[in-house]
Design a protein around this nucleic acid. Structure first.
Lengths: 156, 156
DNA sequence: CTGAACATTTGACAACGTGAACCTTTCACG
DNA sequence: CGTGAAAGGTTCACGTTGTCAAATGTTCAG
């Protein structure tokens, strides 16, 4: 109990970095609230909305969903159950490997997800306060921060 | 079902804004994961850690906690119960208004929260890829986006 | 063919979160 | 005053997320 469990070596973190981290925290909180709210407006939970969003690129094995969301596969079972019960996704066996089940969004699922995405006017008010070139700068900075780190937003 | 439920009037959202929103989503996911992980490493849940973080500025009525976290007050009861059971917070009656219960972090609570905050090396790797002046720019942009919007990160 | 590894499911359990009902306290108003 | 409405917390019932451990079915290497 007397030494920090996971990380030990860590630079002191300068003032700017620290402040950026705090600002991020605020942004994250804001975003999270809005996302959850937008999902709820379509009687989806945040987790369901996330899964649905993942499936926009096509069917996906549950294992992959679990990995992307960094949670246990057994958790996905329940979420997909509920989405399936409402007709937003289907489970189909993968012909290549009969162990895996491919989850695919139905038309209803796709459009619900798309609608939600469109309604995400998060950061639209906040972003509106920035000039165009500032937004570009922000985009570039965020891009650089995220490159190689994030599987979810990978546009491939 | 044929018209969007909540929002109707909404500008088309230019490409840059849209991309920034997507990048934010990635960042949010990343941050969220790390936060939850860092909390878990101290056997706290995310919600408990958030409450504890709120109390760093001093005791606070439960009602206020609920408002800041935008959730129902009844939810806070349980979270504070669990924090209290572990000796991280105490409940004390507000002398001004005996309906109110002020939640205060104990020394253990404060240090746990501080430790967690320090360990949040989120964005330290991501941020490390940015030069100092870029970090400053990022900070300024984020500040402007959040000003007037976010009660949680208010540095007062 | 056998056993290890893998994908999913099931079941038990804890935490979060909501909504409604309830108790106590406060406060405005007659 | 004294009464009733409103506010702060709690409790209860309920559904969703999340974990872990055990089971089932499938694949694949040896």
């Amino acid at each position: 109990m007397e030494n920090t469990p996971t990380k030990v070596v860590q630079e002191p973190a300068d003032a700017i970095t620290r402040e950026v981290v705090d600002l991020m925290a605020g942004l994250v909180a804001l975003f999270h609230r809005e996302y959850e709210e937008a999902a709820a407006a379509r009687s989806l939970t945040g987790a369901q909305a996330k899964v649905l969003a993942l499936l926009r690129r096509g069917p996906m094995p549950m294992r992959h969903i679990a990995q992307t969301l960094s949670c246990e596969p057994s958790n996905i079972t329940g979420i997909v159950d509920r989405l399936e019960a409402r007709g937003f996704v289907t489970r189909q066996a993968d012909p290549q490997d009969r162990r895996v089940k491919l989850v695919a969004a139905t038309e209803a699922g796709r459009s619900a997800s798309e609608e939600l995405r469109e309604s995400l006017n998060f950061a639209r008010e906040p972003l509106a306060t920035l000039a165009e070139d500032e937004r570009t700068t922000l985009r570039d900075l965020l891009r650089r921060m995220l490159e190689g780190a994030d599987p979810e937003t990978d546009p491939s």
